[in-house]
Write a protein that binds this DNA or RNA. Sequence first.
DNA 1: CCTACCGATCGGTAGG
DNA 2: CCTACCGATCGGTAGG
Lengths: 208, 208
Amino acid sequence: MAIETTRRQQIEDAASALFRERGYAATSVRDIAQALNIQGGSLYAHVASKEDVLWSIVSRAADRFNAEVGPLATDPGAPAAPSAPARLRAMIRAHVEVVTSSQRDAAVFLHEWRFLSDERRAQMAARRDAYEALFRQAIGRGIAAGTFSPVDPRLTATAILTALNGIATWYRPDGPLTAQEIADHHADLFIRALTCGAPGSSRERTDS
Amino acid sequence: MAIETTRRQQIEDAASALFRERGYAATSVRDIAQALNIQGGSLYAHVASKEDVLWSIVSRAADRFNAEVGPLATDPGAPAAPSAPARLRAMIRAHVEVVTSSQRDAAVFLHEWRFLSDERRAQMAARRDAYEALFRQAIGRGIAAGTFSPVDPRLTATAILTALNGIATWYRPDGPLTAQEIADHHADLFIRALTCGAPGSSRERTDS
DNA sequence: CCTACCGATCGGTAGG
DNA sequence: CCTACCGATCGGTAGG
């Protein structure tokens, strides 16, 4: 049972590793080719441009975040809607799961997307804003329900996502904390910040 | 009264602006020279290398953070030590003040420092760790005093600083929120997260 | 996928 | 601070 990997996929993997450690602008196409033991020009049998490779990595990472977190943010059809704290906790967990399990691509997505062409960068900015809106809404709903303190949803969503994205910079799979522990710690922290002193905080926990 | 600005300073200012918007690796020495209406080679009458300019920008930014936040973190000689929440609030305010008032240099400091030479990068990594330690200690003291929940000081300090540093990416002086409002919002958020449900939270506010 | 090449640009220097 | 230049390297292509 051979592991299926197209040449294109190998190129993206090698490029992602290099973009992550040196940055997109400081990585040459010859660096990428060398990692695969081929000549620089040979890359162009598989990709149209260096920027094209970046685009593939970045859009795939964006897809993963949407695939994991999106379903938790939108109301499910059948079952009862979760409480605001429970929903936000699930979203934080899912986001951290993607950050840690797709760490390399996530780091490139977060730090190198500005090297995309104007058009693609604008497209990605729109996707990112839509994604952040999922968190803004989750927070806004909690405020409306009285379970969350009346914070600024935009500012708070940005603070939460910035902190979670930062995990991509320092997380080590062999470190002292598992991805789950890190996720739970952050979820605890931010949900405490949001529920503490909330209008309808009558001491009983609707969380988790 | 002419505004005193050395050529070296002008170079660093122009470079900082360019490093910030394009990144260090994607900025050429000719780009910097062009911003000052001189030839590329002429830069080298004032600087030893491109990396030298980056180093100046980055270390000056690091100095500012230390100068503003350091005194708040270490116990003052004469007056009574502030409570843990009050101290952390002051540190958060001071950090955000530097991020927003030195936004351009702070952004370069935060995002481009990895392009320093190995030696300088290691030096800066040590400074950053010492700086983060100020926040870890402030949190640790609060936990020891029973005013803060028993969180992981390292993880929490990193979360706070990552969120605060993110402000450098999106803050606009002409935006809807002042730097002070942003600072207070973040201070409120994180201090609520830390004090809520703390062992010694007997409902009276020792904060600010 | 290779060889061989394109024009452009890189950081930096010599000599004034 | 300029002119003129250094060797190296850049992203990408032609033709096989």
